[in-house]
Design a protein around this nucleic acid. Sequence first.
DNA 1: TTAAATTGCTTGCAAATTGCAAGTGATAAA
DNA 2: TTTATCACTTGCAATTTGCAAGCAATTTAA
Lengths: 141, 141
Amino acid sequence: MTSTAEPRRSECPISFALEIFGDRWTLIVLRDLMLKSRQRYRELLDAEEGIATNVLAERLKRLEHRGLITKKRDPADARQFIYLPSELAVGLVPMLVEMIVWGIRTGDKDAGSDFLDRFETERDKLIRDLQQKVRNDAGLR
Amino acid sequence: MTSTAEPRRSECPISFALEIFGDRWTLIVLRDLMLKSRQRYRELLDAEEGIATNVLAERLKRLEHRGLITKKRDPADARQFIYLPSELAVGLVPMLVEMIVWGIRTGDKDAGSDFLDRFETERDKLIRDLQQKVRNDAGLR
DNA sequence: TTAAATTGCTTGCAAATTGCAAGTGATAAA
DNA sequence: TTTATCACTTGCAATTTGCAAGCAATTTAA
């Protein structure tokens, strides 16, 4: 059996991860899919950071190809598609939470003190709850 | 007092974090500075992923400007500079560890099973130890 | 005491990626 | 039927990247 994976820059897991989401937009898309419960192209395009439509289209293809999201037609409106995170994406929640915490502490403590408080008192439960909510929204399990 | 900070894309802490290290190279540089104990330009340039010299120079300036690293002359060789992570960078270790774990689990389980075992049995200590080692290497206290 | 290396960059340029605006084709609503 | 909406695609200019060569300030070697 031959491998179907892309060639890697190196064997380092950080490098591997960055090949998938090491750019300005991929994690913004995953944030919206998982933490803001957006699941349609139009909703993702409305990210307040202002992603360009061709870039969004390319990132969604990439994420689907890498197995981080699935795409299916909306049964209620055949013009639309629904993008859902996979379990691989759910596995990114701990990293996203650490990124959020660093961002709050470094950038703007006032804006996220509730999150910070909860993180400091019950990190594991916060993450489990978030992951369950994501799975739930995505119809996983 | 007027603010000296760059304008942000949004108030989101993930977005803020990505403005600092949301690209293919910045976290590779921080990985080498913190987890591989490299501290000179030449050593960083030798990253196996093959960073271009102009890109490395720009990233180092950026990281210094953002307060994630400091730069000082090598007292033993005035041609060289020593780049050291700051406490702000040390604060990124938990996120980097989660990224490593995701990368190992997703990409190549065999290559990092020791790290994974230790992560699963004593995550907090693993992170504390790593952070202390980084502070030590950097002469922080 | 010079000449050759080494170090940490900068510069120039081609190639790739991004951002922006304007389509396009399929489906749905009026 | 016409018009609107949705999920893109396309074309193109602007920005960013990668690559190779250069350069000034040391340090090492002859």
